[in-house]
């Protein structure tokens, strides 16, 4: 896979020292973005500037090799579902991922699975505001996509909005090895933030700011809603970024989606923060 100069700090497994771990992301103002109309339930928060404290986030989505280490170490349930579509190329066999896909993002994981992996790795899922800051930069950057203002079909592993949704014009029909689209890097160097796999956040998907917790709500030039978090349990959790089964070209904000936390989708992946 092509990597930017300096290489990519793939997420590190617990106890491995995470060589080349990315630097903390500095606190920045973040504009919460409007919700795309095609999402049918909830998520009708009006945009609001929020503040994000320094944090670190995996530069790449969690790979299947890394997830296998988690399974081998803990005996946790491997990615496997019974639906017909999963029988070819998606399901794991025990703790073994499909041949040759170790550097692809793990998919077929639920929000609970993702939460457990991050906890095992000594990390956590990012909040949605953390994810958005890492993926799109601060508000003043005015980016609709991690790489800039305009869509670039070769900057992400995308799909199509019409069935069968799969698309290989970017070189990949389904998932791609993490970091395969370096030209799609975010201002902070986040890779595959858009495309490849949807990414779980730790937030519930809510439709009112009254349901959102924040440590500081005073307004001003240098402070405001901070540590914004919509705690669960909830019917839906917030997922971001789209996937190989989705295309953000027409509606950039359409990458703000919601999944049932139980379901193991063929597009659901994640990265961790700490």
């Amino acid at each position: 896979m092509g990597l930017p100069p300096g290489g990519v700090a793939s997420e590190g497994a617990a106890g491995q020292g995470a060589p080349g771990a990315p630097p903390p992301i500095a606190p920045r103002a973040l504009q919460a973005r409007a919700t795309a109309k095609w999402v049918s339930t909830g998520q009708r928060l009006t945009p609001r500037a929020v503040w994000v404290k320094p944090f670190r986030i995996d530069r790449t989505e969690v790979t299947r090799s890394a997830y296998k280490r988690f399974l081998d170490a803990t005996g946790y349930r491997p990615p496997h579902v019974e639906e017909d579509w999963a029988q070819e190329g998606y399901n794991w066999s025990g703790n073994d991922f499909p041949d040759g896909t170790g550097e692809h993002p793990v998919i077929l994981v639920s929000w609970y699975d993702a939460t457990e992996y991050c906890a095992w790795a000594g990390k956590r899922l990012p909040t949605e505001s953390e994810w958005q800051l890492a993926a799109l930069g601060e508000q003043s950057a005015e980016r609709s996509y991690p790489w800039g203002k305009d869509y670039d079909a070769m900057a992400l592993n995308h799909g199509k909005m019409d069935e069968p949704n799969f698309d290989d014009s970017d070189g990949y029909l389904t998932t791609s090895p993490v970091g395969s689209f370096p030209q799609g890097a975010s201002p902070y160097g986040l890779l595959d933030a858009f495309g490849n796999a949807w990414e779980f956040t730790s937030d519930a998907r809510v439709d009112s700011w009254e349901l959102v917790e924040s440590t500081e709500k005073s307004q001003g030039e240098t402070q405001g809603w901070t540590d914004v978090h919509a705690p669960g349990p909830s019917l839906y959790v917030a997922v971001r970024g789209g996937s190989y089964f989705f295309d953000a070209a027409a509606h950039p904000a359409g990458e703000q989606n919601q999944f049932l936390p139980e379901l193991r989708r063929k597009t659901s992946g994640f990265r961790c923060a700490d």
């Binding site: 579902v81 639906e83 349990p233």
Partner: peptide, 21 residues
């Protein structure tokens, strides 16, 4: 919230004891 395959008598699911849902 689950597909029928998750509702078989034999299906097991791990969940942290403090995790309410």
């Amino acid at each position: 919230m689950n597909l029928p395959s998750y509702c078989r008598c034999q299906r097991r699911e791990p969940r942290r004891p403090e995790q309410a849902s």
